[in-house]
Design a protein around this nucleic acid. Sequence first.
RNA 1: GGCCCCGUAGUUCAAUGGAUAGAACAGCGGUUUCCUAAACCGUUAAUACAGGUUCGAUUCCUGUCGGGGCUACCA
Length: 609
Amino acid sequence: MAYFCDKLKCYCMSLQTEIKHLVAQAVEELYDRTIGEEDVTVNQTKPEFRGDYTVVVFQLTRYSKLSPEATARQIGEYLLENDEDTFERFEVIKGFLNLFIRESYWLEFLQEYYDDSTFGRHMTSREKVMVEYSSPNTNKPLHLGHLRNNFLGWSVAEILKASGYRVVKTCVVNDRGIHICKSMLAWMKYAQGATPETEGMKGDHFVGKWYVKFNEVYAQQVKELMAAGKTQEEAEEQAPILQEARELLKRWEARDPEVWEVWEMMNNWVYAGFEETYRRIGSDFDKIYYESETYLLGKKLVEKGLRKKIFFKKPDGSIWVNLTAEGLDEKLLLRSDGTSVYITQDLGLAQLKYDDFGAERSIYVIGDEQNYHMQVLKLVCKKLGIPQADGIYHLSYGMVDLPSGKMKSREGTVVDADDLLDEMKATAEKYTRELGKIEGFQEQELDALFEMIGQAALKYYLLRVSPQKRIVFHPGESIDFQGHTGPFIQYTYARIRSVFRKARIRTAADLPFLNKCKEALLDEEKSLIRLLEQYPDQIQQAADELDPSVLAHYLFEVARMYNSFYAELPVAKADSEEKKILRLMISWLTAHVIQSGMHLLGMQVPEKM
RNA sequence: GGCCCCGUAGUUCAAUGGAUAGAACAGCGGUUUCCUAAACCGUUAAUACAGGUUCGAUUCCUGUCGGGGCUACCA
């Protein structure tokens, strides 16, 4: 098998990619032109034609200087001569070279890998990549938008690991700044000493309540000032409570002990709340940074840049960078009162991340509303000479909106993460009970099952869409449990496990060895093996594109095809022993690919459902 | 105003410049003495508009029209 990485003992390249290599090689030998595999198009052959894979020959005729048909024949013959174990024959139809793969190829593949737990993973050691995701503010609880970020970031990190990168997952806690002062101020003024304990609330929700309170008071004051004749702009600027929040920020930056005490207390309430949610959804980090620990380094970098004349100071004392030469604007780096802004700490953090881990690539999973900010950040990092600034990459994703528009924490119009997780779980329970599928479970098992199904529905719903697309969430009707969903894939897995339970097969070792198949492979059997064989390529593509939706769609396709196979053919009750073993092996590999792939998307699979 | 992203069946999503644009949900019609019907099989239905490049365009370029974002001494 030519695609096998001998040294590394892993199946990390699918046949489709191997064919691209071989075609590139053919072009080099036949036409004396060097091309890469990316210059070759190989697709799975369309169902209405015969064959397994199709080489699109049109773009190769510029090298061969022959007609598409003649080129296709030459390349087809080259492939047959050079790898007769893989290719059985070919057909040329117009400019398409349809390749027929030997049945023995599929059988050997299946025999070799049906029980290989590393199948699909790239075992080489590639470069180091940092993935920053989640990065919450400590003034409000997590909402649906944060969930998209967490699921996306976690999954991208795991997919990168699976394709051989060394990954450091990181999270930046935005634990300081004017927004934090707002919730602190509201608590100090109006809470009368209330705590999450006295109110019986989760800490992050409790603090979020005071952030909303601040904005209520602020809005009221703005309204009053405008009634007294101020313009909206003046009113928004002069509202007393905002002045107080600014004063609080200054005191915080001056490390006023009284302020710090409140700050630490409130942040700890929030952390306890976040911890609970992170544990529930499975988010984890190798390193957590706190903005309060990085913003001073950021300030130093800004001062350094000022000395080196990369930045400039305006008469009021504020510090700016001029990016007009790069087609952007002037950007504020430090306020006139000396306090730092959002980007200040990001500069310090970029430096710190490099000092701590020295990763070649640094991926920031952040919403697309910050596209401009991230563009500026990368440019300024380069100007400052921060190492690997070129490796900064913004993985931008679309916002999750409601039919009524944008979610706004300030106004309390958000879909709360904890509430939504509870709802998903309750819906999973409702479906399961309606279908009467709760027999044979312990109470705790049922609880875990509902959680597992509910989360899969939610995670799949958010991950199946390409990151850059925005999602409009319709409460109560958006998330399904049937069709193109996480639970559908879970169900397929449970079905397979059930077949093995009934056949009394616990491990792959219980399956007898299958030397040869006397009976020909049926279409349903071959199509499924062919699809499963593509798993390594799918992981690779998801890693290259930093896009879990690639894997999500692939897994759905696997589940769909298995269900079709299962409906059409008896597995453990096959007519012949040979077919029984073959189909059990196909089932075993299907279960593995589903389990492994779902894990990369952050979803678990149940033995029964 | 400037810059960026997105426009595909009724709805939610696919389609590295390649063969007759593929799924799911909803709709309509079927399948359960047989390994889980959260399933399977069949069926109706779409590339916003106008140009251009190409042997070939949903994909690339230009313009128009729609939706969203950024352009803050907010984060």
